[in-house]
Design a protein around this nucleic acid. Structure first.
Lengths: 135, 135
DNA sequence: GCTACATATACGCCAAGGCAAATATATGTC
DNA sequence: GACATATATTTGCCTTGGCGTATATGTAGC
């Protein structure tokens, strides 16, 4: 699929205008995360998670990678440089939010003891290499 | 009304997720604009303009000021510093868009010859003083 | 008061998008 | 092939929020 001539701002902001999707983005941050972790941490039905991830994917904000049974999602910083800056700013903003911090803490705990979270055998999140905007 | 303890990101992004509202923000930029100018430049029904301005006002992104029969709207940069940065970044991004540039050009022309645009007597947009983030 | 003008809100309609529950589609293992 | 697991999609329901039209509100001038 050819790249769109002009990145659609409306779609971009609509994708960010939902709290569940913001929580997902917050958990991804700089790492690639397996769907099963999202389900555990957000404590939400799996279809709900998948739906929101699909929404983010359609908006061009995340990309998916299959590894056997598991799907990994990570934030992509492509398209427009302005969108990239806004996305980075948004992620920084999320880090200040108490509820978002709690989500991240839960993710860390889950990674340390997957068995306690029904995540035994699931692939751990892995850090993704930084893009040019990360500095 | 007391200030909200935590600025609502979801509401903020939802407000930005509409093309009409982005056009309005683009026209405001660094100036305070009368509703009648929006109606002329966007060539849209007046209730539609008012509805979207109300949406932006409820989201805390613009403020309104009455001057006789006329209402002036301007962008406000309050709330959260992160939101302010995102908003500024968004406005810069809008400036690169061809359609948005055309809107701004039309606004300039309308200001130069209001009579041609059914805007005789309407108050011209006025520049607003910069906030600390403008640098 | 009445009238004109600028703007805001209410109404009815329709599409987008949230949700939960059910079902379909990989993939891996036997 | 059958079966289990991980994830995606479909279905039906309901809310939000676009739109245009009609109406209400606020202000100015008489």
């Amino acid at each position: 699929m050819a790249q769109k001539t002009q990145f659609d701002m409306q779609t971009f902001f609509q994708a960010l205008g939902d709290n569940t999707r913001l929580r997902l983005l917050n958990l991804m941050g700089e790492q690639e995360v397996c769907v099963c972790y999202f389900v555990e941490i957000l404590d939400a039905p799996q279809p709900k998670i998948s739906r929101h991830l699909a929404y983010l994917r359609n908006a061009g904000i995340v990309s998916a990678r299959r590894e056997g049974k598991w799907m990994h999602y990570r934030i992509v910083m492509p398209f427009h440089i302005g969108a990239t800056h806004i996305l980075r700013q948004t992620l920084d903003w999320l880090k200040e939010d108490k509820a978002m911090q709690a989500d991240r803490a839960r993710l860390t705990r889950a990674c340390c003891s997957p068995a306690k979270y029904d995540l035994d055998g699931a692939p751990l999140p892995v850090a993704v290499e930084c893009c040019e905007v990360c500095r």
